[in-house]
Design a protein around this nucleic acid. Sequence first.
DNA 1: AACAATTTCGCAAACGTTTGTTGTAAAAAC
DNA 2: GTTTTTACAACAAACGTTTGCGAAATTGTT
Lengths: 314, 314
Amino acid sequence: MLGISISTVSRALKDHPDISDKTKLRVRELADALDYEPNTNAIHLRTSKNNLFGLIVPSVANFFYDSFIAAVEEECRKSGYTLLILQSGDDSRSEQDSVKLCRQNRVAGVFTCLTSGNTNIDLYKKLKNTGVPVIFFDKVPDDNEEIKVCMADAGSAIIAAGTIVEKNKKKLLALFGNPGLSITKKREKAFLEVTGNNLQVLVHHVDNPEEAKAVTAAALQQQPDSLFCMSDEILTGAMKAVLEAGLKVPDDIAVITISNGFIPKLYHPDITYVETSGYKLGKLAFTTMMENIAGDQAPKELIVESVLVPGGSI
Amino acid sequence: MLGISISTVSRALKDHPDISDKTKLRVRELADALDYEPNTNAIHLRTSKNNLFGLIVPSVANFFYDSFIAAVEEECRKSGYTLLILQSGDDSRSEQDSVKLCRQNRVAGVFTCLTSGNTNIDLYKKLKNTGVPVIFFDKVPDDNEEIKVCMADAGSAIIAAGTIVEKNKKKLLALFGNPGLSITKKREKAFLEVTGNNLQVLVHHVDNPEEAKAVTAAALQQQPDSLFCMSDEILTGAMKAVLEAGLKVPDDIAVITISNGFIPKLYHPDITYVETSGYKLGKLAFTTMMENIAGDQAPKELIVESVLVPGGSI
DNA sequence: AACAATTTCGCAAACGTTTGTTGTAAAAAC
DNA sequence: GTTTTTACAACAAACGTTTGCGAAATTGTT
């Protein structure tokens, strides 16, 4: 339309010094008038650089992950990246599909949280081998060749256990998540080291709120004086059982959990929790990704420290 | 590597009848061995068809939107579409950026929820004019040339009010959200029409859970026999006050709310709620999108009807 | 054995960009 | 007046696919 070549237009649009101001102006005006937007597909194809990150998460509808996602998305926007958010539905098949989608879209990097039972990270290793950095978050593999950002799994468990010991509790019902996950192992190990011989601990593993509720209901028969939950998900199930049993918190049973903070504040009294912030973790994950892209590809495990947020439940 | 041309490989991979079974097999085996994944950028560029939808939402960290997103993402996956999820942060500048991103990525369609103050939908109209369908959800424009999917705002209020009247309650504390929002107006108007002269209603407007708690605590002095909350956010605050006051639900006070369903089930007994399902709305939005793409581009406003989900709180 | 029909595949253009190289004026230097 | 520089812009190749068309190889028909 302007009687000039495509390459001149391209350069004009990106303020290349070869192009005269007069031409640049004409080009910009017409581009505006036509509502021109560059085709990112073509750009990525041509430059083989994709400012797109993939994020794989069990579900966006989750109190922890949604804040993680919000944080990452925010940072991506600031840095000119786009985020492809994929749900694995906590199903390893979908997780694989998601990884495939990431590869098909030639993402510049992947944030991923393993599905519950999954210990097979070959797909991710392949990604890494093709030069695509993978940042594992929250549910990370045991493998120590990877880059991982986590909440202070051991640390938060230690704080929680310490609090229970300090309060001189004698019989604790402790609910952990899927025993296959490293997060579970770490929390459990650290937790039990602190409780040690100080008190009797009834350990159970549960996979979802329903199971947590059922297990708790059964375990309450043994009249524990305290309850620890490894996550919000577990807490909601366990509390349901506690409330149904008509127990008073903290007099009949003390409660402490590890949480993002939203759920514990819904109850009365507020449940005391060790804070694990999805938002903070998201920020950390992003900066780690950027460092990786900038060249630092050493395997590492970064930890967001936890703090105890006292409620009235213990 | 196989001594055959690129076009033959392309055809073999998609089971084109021109290609012999023998060749297809060889191609597939090598593709597998090499972990070949087609480059979607190239495909979209070549075919000028993009199986990508954009979704613009104030925040993914939200009880309602997260389930909406989950639903849409799920359906997209089933239909071979990919979802680009963008957060507007309830800021119209970010909203515009998000629309731009959608255009740059040549999305096949956009789902959007307007930011709070926004009444300017020119950008969306432009999108529509370039053949990209736009489905508005939840916070939709007044404009009636658009395609909109919404919850039954009035309908859910009517059901809640009807339930309270039916239970023969006499003094109701009713908490609504920001009176400036159209959703609040619609719900309040419909609600009060149903309650009418049947009972005394103490109406309050609150903007956040803290305010809901404070207002409820004060209003409990007047000993209402029932409590209605317009949203989960309000419910969490109000329930806090109820629990702190040591009231028994439903004996001391009956409770009913409008909700997505997650929060009400945390309490004991379960809070009775009128369901406004982000999940259902997401499914509806998706099918509407697909219909639109299939050719039906008539403006319309679709409503997801609400249903009463009985808990034990009234 | 000659021809037609069929099967199988390669060639080349195109999608919308970017970018190294080359071309051509006009301006500057000699 | 000739050469050199400068400023601007065009050419062409490339990214990884898809696909219409044509060509070669194979098979079938008389």
